[in-house]
């Protein structure tokens, strides 16, 4: 276990920014933290990073639950929290040199390697204050990656990145996760991007932790199906089993969810029509992460 929160409450005055949050991040996971603005994502990340302290509850970082121990364990982390933390009067190389000296990394080769990794190898003497937001974000990512951390924490890393930059970041993070076994915690508003990247999801809403779910579980819940609305679901079910030779369906109220024949709705229509079943609607359906997230928030 890389990181764990147990019954964590964080209050600012009477307002609970986090309310009884339980979360666990396994080694090797890409953990996507999802929530609206003000849901508590940044507060959670700030507690993980030692910038804020929980009002109640316990946290474990690399299995360590002591404050002093966690300070030491954070040396194994790379972070990009809120906005990029850079020295504006320095070049990209000088910014990395500060962090290299700070972390006691021998040799300067790592600086060029890391700059190349994030696509900033040709910035020369340009100072960080003259960088675009996307370049600043890349530099902040380079700083986080400089010491080859075991646990990478990224708060909204896609902010300011252009579409190509987002794709490159995704590919880089997948590479780091798969090749270097780096555990990654990432918060983002771009749910389609999170869906492609993360292996686990934590959903926060108004400080409450609604659900922790793996990608497989999510896929199971968000399975695509043909939504068939008929007057007589019992008769339609029997026809589906007999004529279409499948039992991959569910019946809910006036709807049948058929998980087969997704590419052949006309076959399903014909079979039901031949059996004199009155059809109200046949349409492909199923949720994606965005739909799942939205329905979960609405239910809460």
């Amino acid at each position: 276990m890389i990181f764990q929160m147990e019954h964590v409450v964080k209050k600012y005055g009477a307002h609970a920014a986090l309310d009884d949050v339980n979360l666990s991040i396994q080694q090797g996971a890409i953990y996507g933290l999802i929530g609206e603005n003000g849901a508590g994502k940044t507060t959670l990340i700030r507690i993980l990073c030692g910038l804020a302290y929980p009002t109640q509850g316990k946290i474990y970082l690399f299995g360590d639950d002591t404050k002093a121990g966690q300070v030491k364990q954070r040396k194994r982390m790379g972070c990009l929290v809120e906005s990029p933390a850079l020295y504006p009067d320095m070049t990209a190389e000088q910014n990395l040199e500060v962090h290299r000296l700070q972390r006691g990394i021998p040799g300067k080769d790592c600086i060029q390697e890391t700059l190349t990794l994030v696509g900033l190898e040709n910035t020369g003497h340009k100072k960080a204050k003259n960088f675009s937001l996307g370049m600043r974000q890349r530099l902040a990512l380079a700083i986080a990656l400089l010491s080859k951390p075991e646990f990478l924490v990224l708060d909204e890393p896609t902010n300011g990145l252009d579409p190509m930059g987002i794709v490159e970041l995704r590919e880089l993070l997948l590479h780091l996760n798969q090749e270097k076994n780096m555990t990654i915690l990432i918060s983002s508003h771009i749910l389609s991007e999170m869906y492609q990247l993360a292996t686990d999801y934590g959903i926060l809403h108004k400080g409450k932790f609604l659900e922790q779910i793996t990608k497989d579980e999510l896929n199971e819940k968000c399975k695509k199906y043909l939504s068939i609305q008929v007057a007589d679901t019992a008769k339609a079910s029997a026809v589906i089993e007999q004529q279409l030779k499948t039992v991959h369906y569910e019946v809910t109220n006036q709807e049948i969810r058929l998980y087969a024949y997704l590419d052949q709705p006309e076959v399903v229509l014909k079979v039901l029509a031949d059996a004199d079943i009155k059809i109200k609607k046949v349409a492909p359906s199923g949720e994606d992460l965005e739909g799942y997230f939205t329905s979960l928030i609405r239910r809460s």
């Binding site: 990073c49 030692g50 954070r74 972070c79 906005s83 850079l86 924490v153």
Partner: peptide, 11 residues
């Protein structure tokens, strides 16, 4: 510049 925060984040 939030560099103090980053310093704390990284131990």
């Amino acid at each position: 510049n939030r560099t103090l925060s980053l310093y704390i984040c990284e131990g």
